[in-house]
Nucleic acid binder design. Structure first.
Lengths: 419, 419
DNA sequence: AACATTTTTTTGGACGCCGAAATAAAACAA
DNA sequence: TTGTTTTATTTCGGCGTCCAAAAAAATGTT
């Protein structure tokens, strides 16, 4: 309860309410909006017609809901949806071996993609921002969308992001630290830009795909080349004071455990990530330093096969991983009592091997009362979830920060009054 | 953004805004309220005069601000504050060896106290609610306040509370589980009642005492007969989906560690709580079951003295505690990156013995970048902080749920309209 | 063609905020 | 003492947004 309430707030809040309804349900008739938001028909008419004048929404042309409508009596509804041209957003995913970009329209539909293979690890920290900006320009040229039509850029990286400073504080994808990204994009392209953690973006994507399921309090674990976590608290992805995500991968499991990429010992990642599993299986986990290279997909498949076959070294690697994961989650449960834990990412392919050890550790690690209220689910992750989440987040931000305020005309008038 | 906005919301929000300003600053003049809330003088007049009519606020009589006012020019201000009679609240703190009660007026000033020694541990679970209700009645009789003048009861317990169900799910203070408390008080006395975790109430009290300092994201650790944690996230005390607190004390530190009162092994509490320290010092931690009795104050003082003297067994107990606490906090930092960690409670008396080991563990347990942004502070806890926090929380709840809505007259009119 | 039904728009009234002007209550100055 | 200045508070008229009720629109049914 910080903000003063006046008619301005009322307008913003209700515009946003209506836009959120549309984001979740897709196109709707005015009557449905009323039912959904609790606003009266009169208000819905007023608000929606303003949003249409502003170019944010549009009435659907006559080719919608063909067999769906059972030829009801009365005046037929007119569906309303976002105007695809209302705003565009760009999502960028940064990995060790390259960039992945996508351009989406105002409805979240992807218009164009672009992938570029660049060894980011040794990239010049000073030049990285420009590199991303150039890639965005190339993406836009593909479909001839002018830069000014893009309202926002979202960038997802592994590791610790500082979204306020717009930098990558530390990431396994880079050798350097505190790499500035947002600044270059805002200066070169003039588009507001936000850096975020990739696991947080998966969480964002899940909320967007099923709010009823993921809208409460949940922990989303990403397992693969690294281990990340997105925390959903009261329906919102948690970004700490600095904007960093939950660094579950670098939460300590055992003091003096195996070496992790972050330089500490015994992190969860040092048991669960791809490189850690290989290291355990090769038998020299205690001494071997983690590799900073991308790990070939085939190596992991081979390891899984070996463990499934019952080879002791491979099986024991997954046992260690399950135990570390289980105790790690037990600690999360003790602190936050989420009602749901989602395990996602390529690492979940081996879940059958991991699960028994995970369950045993959970049982040993947390009071029954707390454990019973948690539902653990494994999501066969769409690889695109990070991109989808980044787009969702960018669009919601545009809704809140730009569209909710009302047309420029009205805001301009306020400014004139001051002069 | 869930709630529809209309003039009703505007009124509630701004009434609340003004009340929150008063709760933080104490009595204020109308001008100051305007500055503080951002509302115009006209609105302040309107809102405050309604709150005064409602009996919630009152103008100060003429004996305020004696030497403080430097005899300024112009019309003098009239201070406004809560009407002490606007509502009363009762706070109850449950310990192993008894109950502690306090009655506060609408300004949060304590009018009466009462302590009763009851061995709660073996109390009849079915009768416990009635016992508390009787104690509350006795407290009210002391100052002849009728029951109906009490707007709310808050109950603080160690362990896991389910504030929605109004029960104590599990607590070291009770042998039984799922002990119902709220129901009896609401039925016998007719007062809304809320059960909460004691560490959460300390956090609540800290926020009330210095919002600038504790209003962001912080973890408050209570060390003593047990180990608890209150989590402040974005200025609000975090209550999980079920209303339980952060059970830091029962977060696992080491698999297969010493036995804890919760029945698991290796919990942080099994290293840090009073009984754990004694157990380590006596040398048989691995086998000895935790005691369920209250531990005499003198025993702890003796142990601290022995450790300070350098006796190896005692010193090593504090070393183990420091390490467990350090790794536990490192895990919290990795997940939530709080900007502040507060160590509080009687256990902090021995901080000089604990601190070096705590710091070493922190260094080993979390990436430098994250650790550097955390400020760790030790608060010589006012023993009353739990009571204060419980009162604060109850009053804020009354502000939000009752006072913000407006006078009964107005609400009654709405109801009539329906009929 | 008249009626029924459902959706959407229009109209008029209420509420709460705000700016500007008026009023109140003091200190200061002559 | 009386007027002037200063600061705090209240009053008044206007504005924006919501809502309920009535009207209009657009279609099916008889």
């Amino acid at each position: 309860m910080r903000e003063k309430a006046d008619s301005d707030l009322v307008r913003r809040q209700n515009r946003l309410l209506l836009m959120e309804a549309l984001r979740q349900h897709g196109a709707m008739a005015r009557v449905d909006m009323g039912r959904y938001t609790g606003l009266s028909p009169a208000s819905i008419t007023s608000i929606s017609s303003q949003l249409i004048t502003d170019g944010i929404l549009e009435e659907a042309s006559a080719q919608q809901a063909p067999a769906e409508a059972p030829l009801r009596r009365g005046r037929p509804t007119t569906q309303i949806d976002f105007n695809p041209k209302s705003a565009h957003v760009v999502a960028v995913k940064v990995s060790i071996d390259g960039l992945e970009l996508a351009l989406a329209d105002g409805r979240g539909a992807i218009l164009a993609r672009r992938t570029s293979r660049t060894a980011t690890y040794d990239a010049d920290p000073a030049a990285f921002g420009k590199l991303v900006a150039d890639e965005i320009t190339a993406l836009l040229n593909k479909v001839r969308i002018p830069t000014r039509r893009v309202a926002r850029v979202g960038i997802a990286v592994q590791g610790v992001a500082d979204s306020q400073a717009g930098t990558v504080v530390w990431s396994p994808a880079f050798r350097g630290r505190n790499i500035s990204v947002s600044a270059a994009i805002e200066e070169l392209l003039g588009i507001p830009c936000r850096v975020a953690n990739d696991a947080n973006m998966i969480a964002e994507g899940l909320i967007g795909s099923d709010r009823a399921r993921y809208g409460g309090t949940a922990a989303v674990v990403f397992m693969g080349y690294g281990v990340g976590m997105g925390l959903i608290i009261n329906g919102q992805v948690y970004h700490g004071p600095t904007g960093a995500a939950a660094e579950f991968g670098h939460m300590n499991h055992l003091p003096d455990g195996p070496l992790c990429r972050c330089g500490r010992r015994g992190c969860v990642e040092a048991y669960v990530a791809d490189y850690s599993l290989l290291r355990w299986a090769s038998g020299n986990a205690a001494t071997q330093a983690p590799s900073s290279n991308a790990i070939p997909h085939e190596d992991m498949l081979a390891l899984e096969a070996a463990a499934a076959r019952g080879e002791p070294a491979a099986a024991s690697a997954y046992a260690k991983a399950g135990e570390a994961l289980g105790f790690g989650l037990a600690r999360i449960i003790a602190i936050l009592t989420p009602s749901r834990i989602v395990l996602a990412g390529p690492g979940t392919r081996a879940m059958a091997l991991i699960r028994p050890h995970l369950d045993r550790a959970l049982e040993a690690g947390v009071v029954d009362e707390l454990r019973r209220n948690v539902e653990i689910e494994v999501v066969p992750i769409a690889t695109d979830m990070i991109i989808k989440g980044t787009i969702d987040r960018a669009l919601r931000h545009v809704d809140r920060e730009i569209f909710a305020h009302g047309p420029l005309v009205r805001r301009a008038r306020e400014l004139e009054d001051i002069a």
